[in-house]
Design a protein around this nucleic acid. Structure first.
Length: 785
DNA sequence: CGCGAATTCTTTTAGACAGCATGTC
DNA sequence: CTAAAAGAATTCGCG
């Protein structure tokens, strides 16, 4: 099918596609069109990565817009949201507008309502539904990307419930679900009343194989000599082999440490094949990477990059990640070794994908457990760059003949697992039951269960009544924590049934609930709106109520850290002692009831929350990023993640404090502002000035400038002495509202730090210079703690 | 007895969404 | 029920 044959698209769309070099539709795309994707029909497309799924989505959305509608594109990751936005923004050429909204991206409901296409993460969409964004009812088309993630126990239920709610909100809604090839695409299609396009077709051939000994054995029976030389590893031989043909490779491993170690070795392999130009460009990139953050991870990465390789995992900051991804796409980097982050993230195809580790540590399995077929297929699907490679190769590594056979059976000939709803798990239901009640989707227990019938879970459930049982447990939990109220029927029954003790409690409860109305309390509404796990909210409320003195920052940081919404730091061996001590030292600051030392696991959780809280406190006491990543053995990405989450949770805690009339609202606000900016209490005012962050604020403060007002009146020489450049100083003064910010002809005085370039004339006799030196020393000792 | 080498024991282990209101060095 | 690599601790071997 040729693009010219498509009808029902906005004028200009077809010529746009042609300019992009798209003439003929891929077979899955043509099948989607035949299935009615352009006429508003529901569709599930289960096709491999990189076989034109986005085009299917685009065609559906554009035709919906042409009919005067509005489309929503749901993605699982923020990084994917930006990627899709960039893609769809090209449609502005013919008048179709795109907006993005994620947790940290701009989000103004009014602004979004003017866009034809909105890209959002599933949680953000859920949040919009909860908060009743009115433009949602204008939607005529929803695309759900990577819909197989419904299988994820953590975040899957959100996507599942959100899709059900959107459909309920607007029964006319066209749903287009894009999935990897999974075992039960048909079941998903049935659930969504959609037709199904299910195919393995790829635009570029994918050859799969296993490397064992000195040979690479392909699924089609072909073999290729890939000798392992000397002491080199299998993956090194494979990388070298394809590099000699000018192909890049992607190596998947099972831990961050392995990713870094492999990257070091593979960069050594790659650096033999680099041209002079490439070396220069790579050196530049390495410099950029070092500038992102002053940490060991950053240095290690830069070192690898100089050799044409890189590692990629969640400990990297997002800047690191995109630098690496972009350079790999531009073929500057020859090899990346990565943890599974990369398989699920933005598009980074390679000629050869090597799945080195097919087992991963899994504490719940008590050791190493094999990866899912789906996961391995997702990794292998990264092989083959359209237009650049004749074909893609995906290789597994075996150390013995038996293992080779096993890998063929387990992954190459195998079909991916079916997608199973995880909705009936308590943590998931806690959140979604409350949200469903709070946003008025259900007002009774029956209504609630009826709504649940619309989910994939219900359509898959074999265990009759399980959902009902868990729902009741959850309702009870929500009621006892004052998030919901049940009314009607209850009173009469409980008064005229004194013999209740003789009937089964379950029976009685059931009779009660039949007639009960469900209503969210104000508190419940707040919790749902804040997007908190109700259990987090309960913990925070309990902690705040328990405090009879003004809570300290550490107390609040530990409190939010022990909430299920915070992913805690891992307690290393021996650290239970260290943090046990810290606990006894600062026990009085912690909020709520500590578990007893003899409650093994619970006490450990408490201590790892303390560790996480301590990290946040250190950050808010202005310890350097490099010091913290080293002290806590984490990457810069982890640090920012923790800070980010804490910021969010403390913001929510502030709202909760207000809701329950806690007297500690201000303390919470201050603690939040301190993590947000990573500064001590005394710098909060300064840091409010645009252009002033934690470091500049400290420098200004040490020179006697303590508030924005001081900034407006201070001696310019002193300001310039504290900051680095005249341009920065001018900007900051202007942002502080100074009338004459110009720094022309001003000489820096006092406090000039021994930083890089700027240890210029030490201010001769600035009145506060001795005070500076004290501050300097304080800071130095603080940092080395 | 002292030092470096070899060996054994111990430790560690993937990922990342959300409120609200605006901007780091 | 399952692994593997790096780092730390301990033992070994030699002069």
């Amino acid at each position: 099918m040729n693009v010219e044959e498509l009808s029902g698209l906005p004028p200009g769309a077809v010529s746009h596609f042609r300019e992009e070099g798209i003439e003929e539709l891929y077979p899955p795309q043509a099948a989607a069109v035949d299935a009615g994707a352009l006429e508003g029909d529901n569709l599930v497309a289960a096709v491999p990565t990189a076989s034109g799924k986005t085009m299917i989505a685009a065609l559906s959305m554009l035709s919906a817009v042409k009919r005067g509608g509005k489309a929503l594109y749901i993605v699982p990751l923020r990084a994917l949201a930006s990627e899709k936005k960039a893609e769809f923004e090209a449609y502005e050429e013919f008048g179709v507008t795109t907006g993005v909204t994620t947790g940290n991206y701009e989000s103004n409901s009014e602004w979004l309502s003017t866009k034809d296409i909105v890209v959002a993460t599933s949680e953000k969409v859920d949040s919009l539904v909860r908060n009743g964004a009115d433009w949602l009812s204008d939607l005529t088309c929803v695309v759900s990307d990577e819909v197989h993630l419904i299988d994820d126990g953590n975040r899957g239920p959100t996507l599942e419930v959100t899709l059900a709610k959107l459909r309920k909100l607007n029964p006319q809604l066209q749903v287009v679900a894009l999935s990897a090839t999974v075992g039960n695409a048909g079941e998903i299609a049935d659930w969504l009343d959609a037709s199904l396009v299910d195919t393995d077709w790829r635009p570029i051939d994918l050859r799969m194989g296993v490397h064992y000994g000195n040979a690479l054995n392909f699924d089609d029976g072909d073999t290729r000599e890939v000798p392992v030389q000397g002491s080199e590893k299998q993956e090194a031989a494979l990388v070298r082999d394809i590099l000699e043909e000018g192909g890049s490779s992607l190596v998947f491993v099972n831990s961050r440490r392995n990713a870094e170690a492999a990257a070091r070795r593979l960069a050594g392999v790659a650096s033999n094949e680099l041209t002079g130009d490439e070396r220069a460009e790579l050196a530049e990139l390495a410099e950029e990477i070092r500038e992102v953050s002053d940490t060991e991870t950053s240095d290690d990465l830069a070192e690898c990059v100089e050799g044409g390789g890189a590692f990629h995992h969640a400990g990297l900051s997002s800047e690191h990640r995109s630098l690496v991804e972009d350079a790999f796409r531009d073929r500057l980097l020859k090899v990346i070794s990565a943890t599974p982050t990369l398989a699920a993230g933005v598009n980074t195809p390679a000629r050869r994908v090597i799945v080195r580790d097919w087992r991963r540590f899994d504490p719940s399995a008590g050791g190493m457990s094999p990866l899912n077929v789906l996961e391995v297929h997702q990794m292998m699907g990264r092989a083959g760059r359209p237009g650049l490679d004749p074909y893609g190769e995906a290789v597994l590594l075996a150390k013995g003949h038996d293992e080779m056979e096993e890998l063929f059976d387990r992954y190459i000939w195998a079909e991916a697992e079916p997608v199973r709803s995880k909705l009936a798990a308590e943590p998931a239901l806690r959140t979604h039951v409350l949200a469903t009640i709070a946003s008025g989707f259900a007002r009774t227990r029956e209504g609630l269960l009826e709504f649940m019938e619309e989910t994939l879970y219900a359509s898959q459930s074999t265990e009759e009544g399980r959902l009902e049982v868990v729902t009741d447990t959850v309702l009870e939990y929500l009621e006892s924590n004052d998030f919901i109220e049940r009314s009607g029927g209850q009173n009469e029954e409980s008064t005229d049934d004194p013999a209740g003790a003789f009937t089964s409690a379950a029976e009685l409860a059931e009779r009660e609930q039949e007639t009960v109305d469900l209503r969210a309390t104000n508190l419940g509404h707040t919790v749902s709106r804040l997007y908190l796990d109700p259990m987090s909210a309960a913990e925070i409320i309990h902690g705040l109520e328990d405090a009879d003195e003004r809570p300290t920052a550490l107390g609040l940081y530990q409190l939010v850290s022990r909430t299920p919404d915070m992913y805690q730091l891992y307690l290393r061996s021996g650290e239970d002692g260290t943090y046990g001590e810290l606990y006894y030292e600062r026990e009085r600051e912690l909020l709520g009831d500590a578990p007893s030392e003899f409650e093994g696991d619970r006490f450990e959780d408490w201590l790892s929350a303390l560790k996480t809280g301590k990290l946040l406190e250190d950050w808010a006491e202005e310890d350097d990023e490099g010091v913290l990543t080293d002290r806590y053995k984490i990457g810069p990405g982890d640090l920012r993640g923790k800070v980010d989450t804490a910021e969010w949770l403390l913001g929510a805690a502030e709202s909760l404090a207000a809701e329950i009339d806690s007297e500690w609202t201000v303390a919470v606000r201050e603690a939040r502002a301190r993590v947000e900016h990573g500064v001590g209490e005394e710098l909060l005012e300064l840091v409010g000035v645009r252009g002033v962050g934690r470091k500049r604020a400290r420098q200004l403060y040490s020179v006697g400038i303590e508030t924005p007002a001081d900034l407006r009146e201070a001696d310019k020489g002193v300001v310039l002495g504290a900051l680095r450049g005249a341009k920065t100083a001018e900007n900051i003064l202007e942002n502080a509202g100074r009338e004459d910010p110009s720094m022309e002809g001003v000489e820096p005085r006092g406090g000039a730090r021994g930083d890089s370039s700027g240890s210029r004339s030490e201010g001769s006799n600035a009145g506060d210079s001795d005070q500076n030196q004290d501050q300097d020393q304080d800071q130095a000792s603080l940092g080395d703690f």
